[in-house]
């Protein structure tokens, strides 16, 4: 594959999705319901990112109650809610993950 064409294609396909909404804002009248919808972007997209990372493994459902990522995410959520700190959230989440790996290597992340 021609690397120049590949880079241009990747750039175009990425830039279009990131730039288009920023570009048309203010020029196109957005419908009234859109303001309400925009406030729901965060919960919808973030949970669509988090849920598969926690509950699936290699594309398959993981219902193991001792799933290290489940407990890491839950404790991190509690710490995040309490501290609102990115650093402490990561310390809590990765701490749980690594504690599982140290105590039960079979359940490693």
């Amino acid at each position: 594959m021609n690397p120049i064409l590949l880079v241009l294609a990747l750039l175009a396909a990425t830039f279009v999705t990131r730039f288009s909404m920023l570009a048309i804002a203010g020029r196109v009248e957005l419908p009234a319901w859109s303001a309400r919808a925009l406030r729901l972007v965060l919960p919808a997209v973030m949970l669509a990112l988090v849920a598969p990372a926690v509950f699936t493994r290699a594309g398959a459902l993981n219902t193991d109650p001792l799933n290290p990522r489940l407990w890491a995410a839950l404790l991190a959520a509690g710490v995040a809610w309490k501290t609102r700190s990115m650093t402490w959230t990561m310390v809590a989440g990765m701490g749980v993950l690594w504690a599982f790996a140290a105590l039960a290597p079979a359940a490693a992340p």
């Binding site: 919960p43 973030m46 890491a72 995040a80 609102r84 993950l97 992340p109």
Partner: peptide, 21 residues
């Protein structure tokens, strides 16, 4: 085995935990 791919997920968890539900 370091599980570093989980770090961005934790940033998303923080965004969810501090959302006005």
């Amino acid at each position: 085995s370091w599980g570093l791919d989980f770090v961005p997920t934790l940033a998303f968890v923080l965004a969810l935990a501090t959302h006005a539900w």
